[in-house]
Simulated scan of single mutants.
Amino acid sequence: MADVLTTEQRRLNMSRNKGRNTRPEIKLRSALHAAGLRFRIHRRDLPGSPDIVFPAARIAVFVDGCFWHGCPIHGAKPKTNEEFWASKLARNRLRDHEVGLQLSGLGWHVLRIWEHEVRKDLPSVVTTLHEKIRDISEAARLA
């Protein structure tokens, strides 16, 4: 099936996608706040500017979009300009890996959550985060 948009129209559409404060990110933040968890957002002093940060537990959370980060379940392959997009998405995955290594090297725990997880099972995501925070905080207390 041919793309009905011109290259310029496609470029304009893609450039309008937000990098922060996306719907899944806001939905997750609202649920975390309702569960009594307090956090910071988009800490620019940390590599990758994590979407959600729990400073006391040193947990950095990224809410990864299925398209932009190459979700193995929902990551769609564009049909136009395939070479460009394959390269772009590979660079995104490489950057995600490098940011994770940098944060780990600084003593942070990195959690990556797919946008489809937030959309399909938000309570489970909140429970998992709550448990991680508790486990890491308890381990730090015992150390």
Rank of each mutant, 00 (worst) to 15 (best):
M1Q: 03
A2D: 12
V4T: 13
L5N: 09
T6K: 03
L12G: 14
N13I: 03
M14Q: 06
M14C: 03
S15V: 03
N17D: 11
N17F: 12
R20I: 05
N21C: 04
N21G: 06
R23E: 13
I26S: 09
K27Q: 12
L28Y: 09
R29A: 15
S30Q: 15
L32K: 10
H33T: 13
A35H: 09
R38E: 06
R38N: 09
F39P: 02
R40A: 10
I41P: 11
I41V: 15
R43S: 08
R43K: 07
G48D: 03
D51A: 05
A60V: 03
F62N: 02
G65P: 01
C66R: 10
W68R: 01
H69S: 10
G70L: 01
I73G: 02
G75K: 05
K77L: 01
K77I: 01
T80K: 00
E82N: 10
W85T: 00
A86Q: 09
S87R: 04
K88H: 00
N92G: 01
R93S: 04
H97Q: 15
Q102E: 13
R112Q: 11
H116K: 14
H116Q: 11
E117P: 03
P123N: 05
S124K: 15
S124E: 14
L129Q: 14
L129R: 14
H130A: 15
I133H: 06
I133Y: 02
S137I: 02
L142D: 12
A143P: 00
